[in-house]
Write a protein that binds this DNA or RNA. Structure first.
Length: 265
DNA sequence: ATGACTCATTACATGAGA
């Protein structure tokens, strides 16, 4: 079975590329982030025509996550139990559309869009750290309850865990994505037994998954590695290969992120 | 070899992204 994750940066704006990618890559389960679309307007039909069932979670034009699967789609959930809410612009705290899960081909796949953080002192940063810690909390419970559980947290984690995950660490000093706090929160998942399988299979430096649209970042290969796949121990043992599909950043109409694929035995 | 930001909005400027 092949699972892919992709921050698509609007599923409507990049629908044609998404469908072409699915057709070309024999993907069984595609986890999307930043779909930027409300549920009622999500383009479900084109995915169904391609043989996929869709579960989506979008509240407004921000965030938005989805799963497309051709190996079953059951027990859909639109947040994880400990997921923290965020108080947006003085409004009451509310859960955002940053997580969706379903059981696909016997694996519980979570498509996750971790909050960006915005700036080191911004309330969004505390939200980001709480989000990652809550994820680790739930993973810890699930592994404790059933050590053979097969689940994956895939998506845009918005953390560059190593200095080699960004083209120039100096650029990020005092900002987001590379701080000790963010890296510690990311590492909490490993501490509870989750295994980040993309690093296991692609340890090389410079294996980026994101390049900013601005300042010729892609042609200059000035990117960031921020899309990952944390698997439960039993699932991690089944991973036979991982690929970062760099070609998807080329040309017009590309997302600023590329797909990351996992092959399971 | 990829190219000088892009997306959505009861839009025509703004917020968000990283």
């Amino acid at each position: 079975m092949r699972i892919a994750t992709w921050n698509i940066n609007s599923v409507r704006a990049h629908l044609d590329r998404t469908l072409a990618y699915l057709a070309a890559h024999e993907v069984d389960v595609l986890a999307l982030q930043e779909t930027k679309v409300k549920d009622a307007v999500f383009p479900v039909a084109p995915f169904e025509a391609a043989g996929y069932r869709v579960a989506r979670h979008g509240i407004d034009q921000w965030n938005g996550v989805a799963l497309a699967s051709r190996v079953g789609l059951a027990e859909v959930r639109t947040h994880f139990p400990a997921q923290p809410p965020f108080a947006k612009g003085g409004a009451a705290p509310a859960l955002e559309a940053r997580a969706i899960s379903a059981v696909c081909g016997g694996v519980t796949v979570w498509s996750l869009y971790v909050p960006h953080g915005r700036a080191s002192a911004d309330p969004h940063m505390a939200y980001k750290l709480a989000f990652l810690k809550a994820l680790a909390h739930d993973a810890d419970r699930w592994i404790g309850r059933d050590p053979s559980a097969q689940f994956a947290f895939v998506g845009d984690f918005n953390v560059a865990p190593l200095d080699s995950d960004v083209w120039d660490p100096a650029v990020f000093e005092g900002k987001t994505h590379t701080s000790a706090g963010e890296r510690a929160a990311f590492g909490e998942l490993a501490r509870v037994g989750m295994r980040e399988v993309t690093r296991e299979h692609i340890p090389e430096a410079g294996a980026y998954t994101f390049w900013d649209y601005q300042q010729l970042r892609f042609p200059r290969n000035e990117g960031m590695r921020i899309d990952f796949a944390y698997c439960s121990p039993a699932l991690a043992d089944r991973v036979t290969g991982v690929r970062i599909v760099r070609e998807e950043r080329k040309g017009r109409g590309a997302s600023d992120h590329v797909p990351v694929e996992l092959d399971l035995a």
